[in-house]
Design a protein around this nucleic acid. Structure first.
Lengths: 201, 201, 201, 201
DNA sequence: TATGAATGAGATTTCATTCAT
DNA sequence: GATGAATGAAATCTCATTCAT
C-alpha cells in the first residue's frame, strides 16, 4: 500500500535473471522462477506474457543501462592520441565495472544465443548498439585526425570482439588467469592492445 | 562393398550439424534429424546414445580438424617481426578459410553454450585448446625476442577474442558489413590490428 | 467446500489400483489411468512422480490398513488351546474379509513382484510385516504354554505361506473350487489345518 | 557337425532363464539375452518366435521335469500313517532338492505372473498340475483310510500353498532365517506341519 | 491480484521385431 | 543358419500455458 511491499514484478525479474545466468535460458523453468521468488505459478503470468517476454524485457532494460554507460564515457572530446587513450581507458573501466556489477545480465548478453527468435533478437540488438557506439567514437577520432583513416566499422567490430571476449573470460571462465584481475587492470590491458597491438609498449 | 552405400552414421551427423547451426541446439529435434536424413526415429538411437552425445561427438571431431589447421600454421620459425606478421597472416587465412568451409561447425562452437553440461564442456574444451595454441606461439615469439615480454596468456586471450568475435560477425551477422569480405581480407585486417592496434598503419 | 468435489488424487489412485489388479503392473499404462479417471495425462504428473511412485504409495497405504486388521485381531490373551484356536479363527475371518473387500490391493501384494525395484521392495516389506505379526503371536502362545516350543519364525513362515496361497486361490483362481466359499469357511478350514494338520479332525 | 558344436538354441534358453530369474520377465530384454549368449540379435528370432514364446517354452520344459519328480515320489503305496508321513517326506526332499538345482526355473514359476497372457497361462498350468498331483495322492490316502475324509481339493490347495511359500522363502528371501537350512530340514519341517499342524509334536 | 490445479502438445527414448545380405 | 542394421509403434515424462476460483 505504501509502496514498500515487495514488488513482485521486480522480484520475479531478478530471480529470472539469476536463473538464466546460472542455468541458461532453456534449463530455467517457470517453476524454478516462481519457486525461488516464492510466488505461485499462475502469478508469473499475471506479470509476464511468456517466458520469452520476461527474457526480452530483462535484456532490454539491461541494454538501456549499458548504453548509458557507453554514452557517458564518450562525452569528452579528445585532442591528442593521449587524450583518446585515456578517454578510452576510463570508458572501459566503467564498462568492466558495470559488467562486474551486472554479471548475470552480461552472461545473458554474451551467451544467450540459443533461444526463441525474439529473445535472440533482443540480445543481438543490444550488442549491435554497443558496437555502434564504438563505431561513432572511432569515426569522430578519425575526423579529428587522431586515428588513421581506416574503416571505422571494421575497427568497431574488432574492438567489440575484444571487449566481449575479454569480458567473457574475466567474468565466467574459471580456466582463465584473468579471474583475479581488477576492472582497472583489465581495462588497462585492453586499451594497450587496442591502440598498440601486440607490438605496443 | 562399393564404398557408395550411404553411411547412415555419417549422414545423421552431417544433418545434425546442419540443423544445430540452422536452428540452434534446442530447437533441433531428433525428429528433425531423422526426417532430413530419411531414416526412422529408432535408427538414430542405433548410432547415438542421445542428442547430447551426437552433439558432443560432432564437436570433438571438429576440434580435431580445427587444431590441425592451427598446428600446421605454426611450423615456420620467424626471425623478424615481418616474418611473424606474415606467419600470423597465413595462419589466420587458413583459419578463416576453414571456418568458411565449416560454418556449421563454427556456429556450434561459437554459440553452443546453452546446452547440456556435457556439450557445453566439449565446446569450451575446443575453444580453450585453440587459445592454448595461440599462447604457445606468442610465448615462442617472446622467447625469440620478436614480441615484447608481455603476459602471453593475456595476449592469447586478446587474440582469441579477436578471432572469435570477427568470425562470428563475418560468418553469421547479416547486419555486418563484413559479410562481403574474403577470408584473405579478414585475415589481413585482423593481423594488422593484432600487431599494431588502432594506431597501426 | 462441500466435501463433494472429486478428489483427483484419490480418484487416480483408485483407478490405478483397479488397473494394476486387472491387467498387471506392466500392462497398465499411465494413459489407461488418466483415461479411466477422466483427466489429462499431465494431471497424473501433478500428483505423482512416476508410475513406480503411485504403485509404491498404494502399497504402503494398503500395508497400513492390513496391519491394522492384524493388530486388532491380537488383542485377546488366550488361556487355553481352544481360546487360541478361536482367536486365530476370528483373525483369519477378518483377514479374509479384508482381502475380499480389497481384492485389488491383495492382487498387487500377492503378484506384484515383477516391477521396478522400489515397488517390489514395498510389496516385500508389507508381506514381511504381516509375517512378523504372526511370529509375535506365535511366540506369545509358546510363552503361555499353549503351543509347543517350536521355532516361531519357521511357524510364522508356514502360516503366512498358507494364508497367502489360500488367498490367491480363493480370490483369483477361476480354476479353483474355493471361489465359492465364504470368508468364514476359508478361515475355518485354514485354522483347522493350522492347528491340526492333515490328520486333524 | 559332430554334435559337439555349442547348441545355440539351448544356450539362448539357458541365459534367458537366468535373466528372467535375475531381473524378471519385463526387465529382461532380447538384447540382454543375445549379448550374454554371444550371438546376434537376429539369431534369437531364428530359434524363437518371440519373447513370450521362449518364456513359455522354458516353463513347459520345466513343468515336465518337475512333474516327473512328483510322479516318481508317489510310487509306493502307504499302509499306515507312518508310511504316508515318510513317503511325503521323501517326496518333499526331492522337491526341495529339485528346486535348489533349478532355482531359476522355480523363480520364474513362483513369481512370473505379470507377463503376457500366454506366459502367465503356462505358469499357472504348471502350478495347477503340481497341485493336482498332490490332490490325487491325498485322495488315495483317504481311500485307504489313512487320512480323514476331508475335501481333498482343499487339502491339496493348503499343501501346495505351504510348499510354494516355503520354497519362495527358502530360495529367494534374504530376510528369512530359512536360507541356511538344507533341503532335508525344510522337508522335515514342512511334513511335520502338514500332518500335525502347530500343535504337532 | 494471486493461487495452484489442470491441461495437452510434443519431445525423448525404448525395444520387440523384421529384413536384406 | 547367422548377422546386425533398421524399423516404428508406443510409452514415459516435461513444461509452458490456461483457467476457475
Amino acid at each position: 500500500m505504501t509502496g514498500k511491499e515487495p514488488d513482485r514484478r521486480e522480484e520475479i525479474m531478478k530471480v529470472a535473471l539469476e536463473l538464466f545466468a546460472e542455468k541458461g535460458y532453456h534449463r530455467t523453468k517457470i517453476s524454478d522462477m516462481v519457486n525461488r521468488a516464492g510466488v505461485a505459478q499462475g502469478t508469473f503470468y499475471w506479470y509476464f506474457k511468456s517466458k520469452a517476454a520476461i527474457a526480452t524485457e530483462i535484456i532490454q532494460s539491461g541494454e538501456e543501462r549499458l548504453l548509458e554507460v557507453v554514452s557517458k564515457g564518450y562525452r569528452q572530446v579528445p585532442g591528442t592520441v593521449q587524450d583518446a587513450v585515456s578517454a578510452s581507458r576510463s570508458l572501459f573501466i566503467e564498462l568492466f565495472q558495470f559488467s562486474q556489477d551486472n554479471r548475470h545480465l552480461m552472461e545473458l548478453l554474451l551467451k544467450g544465443m540459443d533461444t526463441e527468435e525474439t529473445v535472440k533478437e533482443a540480445v543481438l540488438k543490444a550488442r549491435r548498439k554497443l558496437e555502434e557506439g564504438f563505431r561513432q567514437n572511432i569515426t569522430r577520432a578519425i575526423d579529428l585526425g587522431i586515428l588513421p583513416a581506416n574503416d571505422p566499422t571494421l575497427q568497431a567490430a574488432l574492438l567489440t570482439s575484444l571487449l566481449e571476449g575479454m569480458l567473457e573470460r574475466w567474468l565466467f571462465s574459471e580456466h582463465s588467469d584473468l579471474t583475479g584481475k581488477t576492472a582497472d587492470e583489465m581495462a588497462r590491458e585492453l586499451v594497450r592492445f587496442e591502440f598498440f597491438g601486440l607490438l605496443g609498449i
